[in-house]
Amino acid sequence: MKAIMKAFQRAVALDSSIHRNLKVKLPENYSFMENVEIVPLTYSEILSATMYYPVMFGVQDEVVFPFAVTGINGKNVFLKKNGTWKIDTVPNVCRHYPFGVFKEADEYTIIFDETYASDDGERLFDDEGNDTEFFSSIKQGLTELARDFHDAEECSKELFNGGLLKTLNLDVDTKLGKMQFRNMLIANIEYLSRLQPEKLYSLNSKGYLLILHAHYLSLRNFKLFDIFAEL
């Protein structure tokens, strides 16, 4: 994923030479998400995300990707005061923080938020620069995350190039205030209704048809913001 989540305060690319002695203390809860309003989604979580979050598609540097709206005006409505999540559907990228992946061209790089460097944390590399057992486990999860992001981008690209996504400008008004979305992408339901059966079959066999409908209907979840804000 090329977009770096807002939670990253000092994101750096990990290097076994530069960060040979780096120690990391993982966060105890999701309080780092307090001010995050938008989270990029991986392919495997799009459908589950549409149950609670408004899900749309965005474009950055010609890359199309899905994302979930988690808050408004710097307030994450899904986060409790004690740093726990209000629902069980937590975006994948949050589960890996303070680590993440950044895509440049066709290469993924592991990034880390330096604010979580700690003298009493776990080492990522041994004295020879090899991955520790602690970091090997994290690295395996990040590899799966990168693959999942890749699948999300491939799905989004096919939908966009096939004319199945159209530009959306949306004004949202909640108890927490107003929010504007400009040049976002949403399912082109009108175009979808005119597709030939064989094209619909192809979309359905890939799981894309369900994603289009679920994401389109997920915009109703902005109505849930007022409810979640009071929990």
Results as ranks from 00 to 15, higher is better:
73 N>Q: 14
190 E>T: 12
190 E>P: 03
152 A>W: 02
128 E>S: 15
88 D>N: 14
125 F>M: 05
134 F>N: 00
61 D>S: 13
164 L>E: 04
139 K>R: 15
120 D>A: 02
172 V>M: 08
192 L>T: 05
170 L>Y: 12
105 A>S: 15
85 W>I: 06
192 L>E: 04
82 N>V: 09
81 K>L: 11
141 G>F: 07
93 V>C: 07
92 N>Y: 13
159 L>M: 10
130 N>A: 15
95 R>M: 12
156 S>A: 15
133 E>L: 11
63 V>N: 05
130 N>V: 13
87 I>K: 04
92 N>L: 14
57 F>T: 00
181 F>N: 06
174 T>Q: 09
160 F>P: 02
59 V>T: 09
179 M>T: 13
64 V>C: 06
179 M>Y: 13
130 N>Y: 12
71 G>W: 02
57 F>Q: 00
86 K>N: 09
119 D>V: 00
144 E>M: 14
97 Y>W: 08
96 H>M: 15
73 N>P: 06
97 Y>C: 06
72 I>P: 01
54 P>K: 06
74 G>M: 08
120 D>N: 02
72 I>G: 01
190 E>I: 11
167 T>Y: 11
125 F>S: 03
157 K>M: 12
75 K>A: 06
172 V>T: 10
56 M>Y: 11
63 V>Q: 12
151 D>Y: 11
123 R>C: 00
85 W>K: 06
165 L>W: 03
151 D>K: 12
168 L>T: 04
